[in-house]
Computed example of a mutant assay.
Amino acid sequence: MRAKVGDALVLEGQHVGDGQRIGTIIEIGHADGTPPYRVRWPDGHETYVSPGPDARIRPATGPDPR
């Protein structure tokens, strides 16, 4: 997984009925774009995330790659 600052991190829900969590990547852990990522969530909270298999990157520009 590789990302750039400004991309969205999309986390799929773990259980039936769970929604997606979508945050904005504000810092990249490594120069090659690999995790961990510092993410700002819509409520303003910021966390460091090492995404698992339920996550995907949505580029800052262009369509959602679903």
Rank of each mutant, 00 (worst) to 15 (best):
M1H: 09
R2M: 06
A3S: 12
A3L: 00
K4Y: 11
V5N: 14
V5W: 08
V5Q: 03
V5H: 08
G6V: 03
D7C: 05
A8R: 13
A8H: 14
V10H: 14
L11G: 01
L11K: 15
E12L: 13
G13S: 10
G13D: 07
G13P: 05
G13I: 13
Q14E: 06
G17V: 05
G19K: 05
G19L: 01
G19W: 12
G19I: 02
R21G: 02
R21Q: 10
R21A: 13
G23A: 03
G23C: 06
T24R: 14
I25L: 10
H30W: 11
H30G: 05
D32Q: 09
T34Y: 09
T34E: 10
P35S: 14
P35D: 01
Y37V: 09
R38I: 02
R38N: 04
V39E: 00
R40A: 03
P42H: 06
P42R: 13
D43Y: 06
D43E: 07
G44Q: 11
H45Q: 15
E46V: 12
E46F: 02
E46S: 02
E46Y: 09
T47P: 02
T47G: 04
Y48C: 07
P51G: 08
P51A: 11
G52H: 09
G52D: 11
P53D: 14
P53F: 15
D54Q: 10
A55W: 04
A55M: 02
A55T: 05
R56Y: 15
I57W: 12
R58M: 02
R58I: 01
P59S: 07
P59C: 04
A60R: 12
A60G: 10
T61K: 14
T61N: 13
T61S: 07
G62K: 07
G62E: 13
G62P: 06
P63N: 11
P63V: 05
D64Y: 13
P65Y: 09
R66M: 08
